[in-house]
Design a protein around this nucleic acid. Structure first.
Lengths: 342, 342
DNA sequence: TGTTAGCACTCGTTTTGTTAGAGTGCTAAC
DNA sequence: GTTAGCACTCTAACAAAACGAGTGCTAACA
């Protein structure tokens, strides 16, 4: 176990390195922060810390940089919960207001804000509310051979698509049909609308084969769309602000990974269970980001996972700031969604 | 005016430089391309071309690189219309098929394809069809105090949003109201739905003030949304593949510009009139991209501008390939939209 | 026993110097 | 008009030297 002075020194080194990205030497610590001890003493302590695996030296004549183990210790024990400045909060609020038409916009804004505030890449995974309950469908006539099929769910979402109808079908017939289908599906969660249910429906009210097939396909597609998980990325170009990514090759390799939506989704889903998850360096199981750290927060509404947000960046990351921002966004989203539900 | 040999040499230099990004020397030309003349002769010609402003030397002992004037001459007079390989066409088709749910997806795919094929940043500006004609509106009841307002246009698009309704309003009343509003707006182009028209409507059928205001706002918002121009960017990370952008600072400055949607929109709108527009280096009026070239193609349907696509990259750009790809995409889009209209 | 000043040592970075090579321009000959 | 030859220029690449930040160790001190 580290004594208090070692802890303090370690903390200062980590924080100095986080903000400067330069190896930290004993003199720097002595000069910048008044600990009442000389560089030589600090040197001794640093030597110990290196032996214990918390610090490493890029080379003999450089200062020291924190190891992954140090970051781990830092986020577990040293970090102090911070709070956002009023300025930051005002910025966040204004960014959210900038564009807020749909649910998607909110997620997109979240990704953007997260990346801007942390100067790192952000990822937001939105689980569409699979619990949305089917209310009814309705056909809106378009022309003699097409109509618009609207699916209404109880959360106020409407999805629509154009379907082909038998030539000259009358509105009343359509309403009748819609009514029959609606009665079967009403009250079902969209996730429940399975192939079996749909094909049963097909058997049940199969008057016009062609029409029916196109309906069913439309309904299925839409319920699938509702269930979809979507990924929002933010600030991939913030990467360039990090000295770790001064090298174009490294940027390219990371962007290559982020480009694959599937990979990002897997990455996010993997860390979804715990509320706040921080993976540092090689703790990351995904190849290609093992020299990075990731801070991920999963948010729930009534026990269900609504989504998860994450920040990905070099291990030298402002963990404190990231956590603080996420916490704020989390609360913000919560009130926003609750408002929405009313 | 340049004689044929000068033209040929200039063309070879330009094309060699485009593909290698290295200054081209007289020996290179003599060795690579069999012109039947010695390096010394080529040297003389190159010296002339430099004097005429077509070539420049980074320094004495380097080869020469084309000037902006040379590129201009190249695209105006030297370039030969190419055609895509079967392989490329197959790729494009498969990329389009990959994701094709909505109109937006098509534009997004276009941007993606354009950037992938040309290894440069692509921009697509989609003018939503302002000519869509209003058909009718319809209220779908949701709960006792909310309904979903659907706006149906004759191109089969439906927009919807949740509006507040007076507590306990009956479906028949809503239908009646919808009918009245629909009759006034029917047949109008969405772009025609002006504030005056809406407020006239307000005067005309202002039975329930609150309800009405929320309706009108919804309709207005939706017609505005319909009219919106949207910008799609593609392959901002392709930038990193270009040797010109080996330097992170340059990448950052360009990405900064592309980040501002408004700037991109202005940029695209500015070049919208002509069918194919190529701006090279300082011909660009926008600051920040004056060391870049831009190839822009505007596509129309029945005389109306549907959208415009552009490729932005270093002046050393594969102009021929870019034009060929754009031409192909143009045709592809055309058939796609025409199918859609049926 | 913990702390500190002093000093030799290490090693990466910066600076300076040197060389090799690519390319040109000029001249003279064909 | 074309070309071979050659001197000249300039950069990129490499090597050597000077610099400096930082350490580890030792001995002295409280």
């Amino acid at each position: 176990m580290l004594n208090d002075r070692k802890k303090k020194i370690l903390q200062l080194i980590i924080e100095d390195y986080i903000s400067t990205a330069e190896p930290v030497g004993s003199r720097t610590i002595a000069r910048k922060y008044d600990l009442g001890i000389s560089p030589a003493t600090i040197r001794n302590e640093m030597s110990d810390l290196e032996l214990l695996g918390y610090l490493e030296q890029p080379h003999t004549s450089a200062g020291r940089i924190p190891s992954a183990q140090a970051y781990r210790f830092y986020v577990d024990s040293l970090i102090e919960p911070g709070s956002l400045t009023d300025n930051d909060m005002a910025l966040i609020n204004s960014w959210y207001k900038e564009r807020r038409r749909s649910i998607d916009d909110i997620f997109q804004s979240t990704a953007k804000i997260l990346s801007r505030m942390t100067q790192n890449v952000s990822m937001v995974l939105a689980n569409k509310d699979a619990g949305a309950v089917f209310r009814y469908i309705k056909f809106l006539p378009l022309d003699s051979s097409h109509a618009i099929l609207c699916i209404v769910t109880d959360d106020g979402n409407v999805d629509n698509c154009v379907v082909e109808i038998p030539l000259g079908m009358r509105p009343e017939e359509m309403d009748y049909l819609a009514g029959r289908i609606s009665r079967v599906l009403e009250g079902k969660e969209l996730s429940e609308i399975s192939d079996e249910l749909l094909s049963a429906l097909h058997m049940d009210v199969a008057e016009d084969k062609v029409l029916f097939t196109s309906f069913l396909q439309a309904i299925k597609r839409m319920s699938r769309k509702q269930n979809e998980q979507r990924v929002f990325l933010g600030g991939t170009k913030q990467l360039l602000n990090q000295p770790e990514f001064r090298d174009v090759e490294r940027v390219k390799s990371l962007l290559g990974i982020l480009e694959e939506e599937k990979v990002v989704r897997d990455l996010l889903v993997a860390g979804e269970d715990s509320g706040l998850k921080i993976t540092i360096g090689t703790e990351n199981k995904f190849t290609g980001i093992q020299d990075c750290s990731m801070v991920q927060a999963t948010y729930r509404l009534n026990g269900k996972i609504v989504g998860t947000m994450a920040v990905l960046g070099p291990t030298r990351m402002e963990y404190g700031k990231v956590i603080t921002v996420m916490d704020y966004l989390h609360k913000y989203l919560k009130t926003m969604f609750e408002q929405d539900k009313e």
